[in-house]
Simulated assay, not measured.
Amino acid sequence: MALERAIANGDSLWEADLLAAAHRLKRADITLDKGEEWEHLHTQFHRTLVAPCGSVWLLRFIEQLHDQFDRYRRLGPKMPTIRQELDEQHHQLVELALQRDANAARALMDDHIHKSYEVALKRYQEHV
């Protein structure tokens, strides 16, 4: 919902901020070993993506969900194939947002979240 609203409400400043956040994340994908700096840039990218949704409550709820899930995602195993797919999805999300294709962006975000869940679940299954 937040992504759809952000796409509807986002202006040219949001587009510029989104492109900048995506660029920083992409450079970090290449130069960093998915450490703390990458985690920060990843969080900033997703925050920027939904920032103009127009609902402080929705943004707070997203932050809570992110914080709760993030600890498990970070513990996930190294899965280069899925990691590469997730990184590519960031680029695709930007393209869809700029094209104002809210339906396709939402479907991609659903898949993005599910793939991240798979990584976290794999970690859990290894320790059960």
Rank of each mutant, 00 (worst) to 15 (best):
D33N: 09
R27C: 09
R27H: 07
D11A: 06
D17F: 05
D11Y: 09
H40G: 07
R27E: 11
L19R: 12
K34G: 07
L19Y: 01
D17P: 02
K26I: 04
R27Q: 14
D29T: 09
L13Q: 12
R24V: 05
D11C: 06
S12A: 15
L41C: 06
E39D: 14
E15K: 02
E37N: 07
R27N: 07
L19H: 03
E36K: 01
E36C: 03
L13I: 04
S12R: 14
G10C: 11
N9D: 08
E37R: 04
D17L: 05
L41A: 03
K26M: 06
A20Q: 15
L32F: 03
E37T: 09
L18P: 08
D17K: 12
L13C: 07
L18Q: 08
K34Q: 09
D29M: 09
A16P: 02
L41N: 00
L41F: 15
D11H: 08
L25N: 08
L32W: 01
L18A: 11
R27D: 05
K34P: 00
D29L: 05
G10T: 13
S12E: 15
L18F: 11
D29C: 13
W38D: 04
W14K: 02
E15D: 14
S12T: 15
N9T: 10
R24W: 05
R24S: 02
T31N: 10
A22C: 13
H40E: 10
E36Y: 05
R24I: 03
I30W: 00
E36N: 03
L32R: 05
E36D: 11
L25D: 05
T31Y: 14
E39R: 11
L18S: 10
S12Y: 14
R27P: 00
E15R: 02
D33R: 01
K34M: 13
A21P: 04
A16E: 10
A16C: 06
E37K: 02
A21W: 10
E15P: 01
A22N: 07
H40D: 10
E39T: 09
K26R: 15
D17Q: 14
L25Y: 12
